[in-house]
Simulated assay, not measured.
Amino acid sequence: MTQQHPWSRYVALGDSFTEGIGDPEPNSPGGNRGWADRVAEVLSEKTDDFAYANLAVRGKLVQQVIDEQVEPALALQPDLITISAGGNDVIRPGSDPDAVSRKLEGAVKRLSSNNATIVLFTAVDVGFSPVFRSIRGKVAIYNENVRAIAHRYDCLVADQWASDSLPDIRMWSADRLHLNSLGHHTVARIVLDALNVENVLQPLDPEPYPARTWRAARREDISWAREYLVPWVIRRIRHQSSGDFVSAKRPEAGAVHLSDES
């Protein structure tokens, strides 16, 4: 059983990470569940009239999150806010993690105006990933900036960088950019821990897939590059986003319908 907590109105802001991409669920709005839905499900269990909105849209850069989500979020009058933004900026070649962080801080400053509890996120340690290992230092700088922002504005931090579980390919979907269902489940546990909310979510539930053989992994590398990497690069060249023409899956704060898996 979960303990009573002080929040009754939760709004999530961000990009594909918060939208729940990689965690398909046909019965969820937008067709994806994700960690934020899982957190909302737990928070709703012992709170009457708990309301949840998710404004996150895949592919959004930090400035787009600011322009398109911050004011709508405040209009919903939340007492709990999660915001994860800047990841799509940081992984772009030539991006400046300090400049991205300054934009995030502006968003946090505005969101803090209604005295809601705000949760920020460090990024996962990407040292395990052959694709993103080269930007590990840039990600670490961004994470330190996130921690400094959290200190200045009295925010909580869901510390993915400290997780021993997330730097594991078995936590990630086939595109290697988004968490799979187990990864989202793990992040939900990290967020609930940051909120100090007891819950029944268990680690490694469901069990991760067994580790692949070297030969199978190389076959997957070739398939991944063809199916995911090349289209991603083409979108960057064309200044396109996977979130173009996509709307927020939960634009209004409403009741949470528990998943059969929760």
Rank of each mutant, 00 (worst) to 15 (best):
A216S: 09
A216R: 08
A216Q: 08
A216F: 03
A216T: 09
A217G: 07
A217H: 11
A217I: 04
A217T: 12
R218Q: 09
R219E: 11
R219Q: 09
R219W: 07
R219I: 06
E220T: 05
E220A: 10
E220N: 10
E220I: 06
D221Q: 09
D221R: 05
D221G: 05
D221M: 07
I222Q: 02
I222T: 08
I222F: 07
S223K: 05
S223R: 06
S223E: 08
S223T: 09
W224M: 03
A225H: 06
R226S: 13
R226Y: 14
R226H: 13
R226E: 13
R226P: 06
R226Q: 12
E227A: 09
E227Q: 06
E227M: 04
E227D: 10
Y228H: 05
Y228R: 04
Y228E: 00
Y228S: 01
Y228L: 00
L229P: 05
L229N: 06
L229R: 09
V230S: 05
V230R: 13
V230Q: 07
P231R: 02
P231I: 03
P231W: 04
P231L: 04
P231F: 03
W232A: 15
W232Q: 12
W232H: 13
W232I: 08
W232M: 14
V233D: 09
V233S: 11
V233M: 14
V233H: 12
V233I: 15
I234W: 14
R235G: 03
R235K: 11
R235T: 04
R236I: 15
R236Q: 14
R236C: 12
I237L: 15
I237V: 15
I237W: 13
R238Y: 10
R238D: 11
R238L: 13
R238V: 08
H239P: 07
H239T: 10
H239M: 14
Q240I: 08
Q240P: 07
Q240S: 12
Q240T: 12
Q240K: 13
S241Q: 06
S241W: 04
S242Y: 12
S242D: 12
G243F: 01
G243R: 00
D244A: 13
D244W: 08
D244K: 10
D244C: 07
D244Y: 09
F245L: 10
V246A: 02
V246W: 01
V246C: 02
V246Q: 02
V246H: 00
V246Y: 00
S247R: 10
S247P: 06
S247T: 13
A248T: 01
A248W: 00
A248Q: 00
A248I: 01
A248G: 01
K249V: 06
K249G: 01
K249T: 07
K249H: 07
K249C: 04
R250V: 00
R250A: 02
P251Y: 01
P251T: 03
P251K: 02
P251I: 03
P251S: 01
P251M: 00
E252V: 15
A253W: 04
A253H: 04
A253K: 01
A253F: 03
A253Q: 06
G254W: 01
G254L: 01
G254D: 01
A255C: 08
A255W: 06
A255E: 03
A255T: 08
A255F: 07
V256T: 00
V256M: 00
H257V: 15
H257C: 11
L258V: 14
S259N: 13
S259E: 09
S259T: 11
